[in-house]
Simulated assay, not measured.
Amino acid sequence: MATETSTPAAPAVHGRPSDSALAAGLDALETPIVNPRPSFAVSVWRSAWPVLAALAALVVVWQVAYTLELKPPYALPSPADTWQTFVSTVQDGTAWLAMSTSVRRAAVGFVLSVVVGVAIGTALAASQLLRRAFGPIITGLQSLPSVAWVPAAVIWFGLTDATMYAVVLLGAVPSIVNGLLTGTDQVPPLFLRVGQVLGARGWTRIRYVLLPAALPGFLGGLKQGWAFAWRSLMAAELITVAIGGGLGQLLDTGRSLNDMSLVIVSIFLIFLVGIAIELIVFSPLERAVLHSRGLTGQTSSTGRRK
């Protein structure tokens, strides 16, 4: 630990720093960088004000376009009319019912996708033969639009929630598998050698060495998997409106009624759920994982990592 002293450093000898100067420099390197953490309110405001400013700018542009009548009012309603539609859908419970139905379906489908994706990804990471055989297929499935699975899922499972879950699984699992494989590829070989020296073999090596070390990289795959799951569900709800419920059906209702205000409100609610899941689930999870591994770069006033 660096100590403060008033003793001046010895002069350099023949252009080279003296031993005391070198020691002072090394002590300075060990001096902790104190980064006081801002309060919760300040952190929230710092994160929120750029987004709020951007949304305000979009609303201004929207109002200008409405005033200039770039589109007929039925195709481009005013922000005030859209706000009234939003308030009415919230007050009569339509928005809450649609959001809760979609979030429930997405949550169940995503949990199943994580279970299946981790199982497949672990098997591919443990066997180079399986990875060479199925790796390109997983990548191809990831590039396939999830909406293409909707007709097949309807034929397989009929107009039930199982169709929604099947589409979510087929849309999210490839991203989760590739995310896990990417995380395992980033594991330093030294970790694996140390685990081998300590006797970690087979499932023990995977459970206690490979998967924990791959977790930071795997989080990116989970976030991408959620994005694919949410988009897949919206596509399924939009096409299979006969199943009922969900934000996708609310969006299709606005289209059927030629109610652009309801269409915009539905799009906003879909966007809102996506942002909320990111802020409530994935951002805290990512911070917790990075904090547990000392990757946040924050130190307390005592010099210890926070």
Score class of each variant (00 low, 15 high):
2 A>Q: 08
2 A>G: 02
5 T>E: 13
6 S>P: 07
7 T>A: 12
9 A>Y: 07
10 A>M: 13
10 A>Q: 14
12 A>D: 15
12 A>G: 15
13 V>F: 07
15 G>A: 08
16 R>V: 10
18 S>P: 10
19 D>A: 15
28 A>V: 06
29 L>Y: 02
30 E>V: 04
31 T>Y: 02
32 P>Y: 05
35 N>V: 08
35 N>H: 04
36 P>M: 05
38 P>L: 15
42 V>I: 12
51 V>G: 03
51 V>M: 02
52 L>M: 08
52 L>Y: 01
53 A>C: 13
54 A>I: 02
56 A>S: 11
59 V>N: 02
60 V>I: 15
62 W>H: 12
62 W>K: 14
64 V>C: 06
64 V>L: 14
64 V>G: 05
70 L>I: 14
70 L>C: 04
73 P>T: 08
73 P>Q: 07
74 Y>A: 02
76 L>R: 10
81 D>S: 14
87 V>Y: 04
94 T>N: 04
95 A>C: 07
98 A>T: 00
100 S>M: 13
105 R>A: 03
106 A>G: 09
107 A>Y: 00
108 V>K: 02
110 F>G: 05
114 V>D: 13
116 V>A: 15
117 G>Y: 10
125 A>V: 01
127 S>D: 14
127 S>K: 01
128 Q>M: 04
133 A>Q: 00
133 A>L: 11
139 T>V: 12
142 Q>D: 13
143 S>A: 15
145 P>K: 09
148 A>N: 05
151 P>K: 00
152 A>D: 00
153 A>P: 05
156 W>H: 00
163 T>K: 04
165 Y>M: 15
166 A>L: 15
169 L>K: 04
171 G>Y: 00
172 A>Q: 11
180 L>S: 07
180 L>K: 06
185 D>C: 03
186 Q>M: 11
190 L>G: 06
192 L>R: 12
195 G>C: 11
196 Q>C: 01
199 G>T: 10
199 G>I: 09
202 G>Y: 04
202 G>W: 06
204 T>M: 14
209 V>M: 06
210 L>C: 05
212 P>Q: 07
213 A>L: 01
217 G>R: 00
219 L>Q: 08
224 Q>V: 07
224 Q>S: 12
226 W>S: 03
226 W>N: 03
227 A>R: 05
229 A>F: 11
229 A>K: 12
231 R>Y: 03
233 L>D: 09
234 M>Y: 13
235 A>G: 10
240 T>A: 15
243 I>E: 03
244 G>W: 09
244 G>P: 08
247 L>K: 06
249 Q>W: 03
257 L>Q: 12
257 L>H: 02
257 L>I: 09
257 L>T: 09
259 D>F: 00
264 I>G: 04
267 I>K: 00
267 I>G: 13
268 F>C: 05
271 F>D: 12
274 G>Q: 04
278 E>Y: 00
279 L>N: 01
280 I>F: 01
283 S>M: 15
284 P>G: 09
285 L>P: 06
290 L>W: 01
292 S>D: 08
293 R>C: 05
294 G>R: 00
295 L>W: 02
